[in-house]
Design a protein around this nucleic acid. Structure first.
Lengths: 213, 213
DNA sequence: CGTTCCATTGGCGGATCCGCCAATAGACTT
DNA sequence: AAGTCTATTGGCGGATCCGCCAATGGAACG
């Protein structure tokens, strides 16, 4: 009763990246493989959401750093409305925080842009088959320093103000708390980021990706 | 006596980018235009230099952030040996410092990766014709805050140590100068970066691109 | 209901920071 | 040769930081 070997339906893809040339590269690389079909492309998060609903792609390739809403937020919104959506993050950032947030927000995989073309295809197939993709290197980075890190929302607020040069006293007033409390937050921030002073804390923030330029 | 309209020789290109998919995109986009011929591709600075000597491309498209030696250093080395080499920086960074250093190191142009495919071709032609390329936006960014900025080598050393959490006293010892001198450098750093304390100075460093994650 | 995490606040004290004053010497530019 | 930039150092003092002590209330999780 088996039908004569008909080619399997291609995996339908949505590409999201704010670099036109990069999208052309993806489309080109994927076009060499008849197993894929690019059904739409977007260069920002908003249109990505619209296009997703229109085309219902099997897998979405999503960049993180984009103008407007970033890739993480885009994915959060997408998966809120469509929890079954399968997303592969394809970005140049290997910052810990980006990986962590992406996976937490429901990414099925995370690969960096220095991936080889052939591996990209494999990754997409894995994702489509219900698997997950995360390089050994990123796994290692995640586990090795995930111990105490990741600041609370309040601590992030404080760090954001520290970055702008506010004193503990000013931070207290800006957040409606006492200077003493701001200092307490500062203490835990220093400990969590393994920094010896606020300057080092800011640096660690940028290094880990919890602060963005 | 004019020869029958023969097509002009294509502009010979070398592509340098550590993202294979991105290179595929560039090659693909440029292949649509018969005026270009990609003669070689490199994914790091070392091989870029080798390939340049082998192929003597008319124009080199160069990314800045790469593993190994970065694009700026690659260009410095290239132009030291071959001052006539024409290079167009094609990168995702729009950090002030990257633009400034690239132009200083002899780039004929600087465009960001969110450029449209058609504009990319135009830019390359301009470069090849001996012109220079720099978007209005980047020009503006350069002039607007180039006033006091750009730290001296010594100040960069100090900022690098501040970033690691060293005190003025420690910095003095590490650099073989007095604590007082370290503090003086700190003072000028704060002034130049328009920062109110060392934490803000570090932040400004990352924002402007003089510090890298 | 107990545990854990988060946010909050207090006091004390030594270490560190940053601003303002001023000065010298070498290198580089014009 | 004059002027500019860079690196260097000194003193003084108030502002700020950070560590160590301890404690309370609420929310979340099991």
């Amino acid at each position: 009763m088996t039908a004569p070997a008909s080619p399997p339906a291609p995996i339908r893809l949505l590409l999201v990246d704010d670099h036109p040339v990069m999208r052309a590269g993806m489309a080109n690389v994927l076009a060499m493989d008849s197993g894929f079909e690019v059904v739409a492309q977007a260069d920002d998060g908003e249109s990505a959401l619209v296009l997703w609903r229109q085309h219902r792609p099997d897998v979405t390739l999503l960049d993180i750093s984009m103008g407007g809403i970033d890739g993480i937020d885009t994915m959060r919104r997408l998966r809120q409305d469509h929890p079954a959506a399968r997303v592969l993050i394809l970005t140049s950032s290997d910052a810990n925080e980006d990986v962590r947030l992406a996976l937490k927000a429901g990414a099925c995989g995370y690969v960096t842009k220095n991936i080889r073309a052939s591996e990209l295809g494999d990754s997409i197939r894995t994702i489509h088959a219900g698997g997950r993709i995360l390089s050994e290197e990123l796994k290692r980075k995640l586990t090795e320093d995930d111990g105490s890190r990741h600041l609370t929302p309040r601590e992030m607020e404080v760090l954001g103000l520290v970055r702008q040069g506010f004193t503990n006293d000013e931070i207290g007033r800006l957040l409606g708390i006492s200077e003493r409390t701001a200092r307490a937050h500062m203490g835990t921030i220093l400990e969590k980021l393994n920094a010896s002073d606020r300057a080092a804390a800011v640096a660690r923030g940028f290094e880990t990706g919890i602060l963005k330029a």
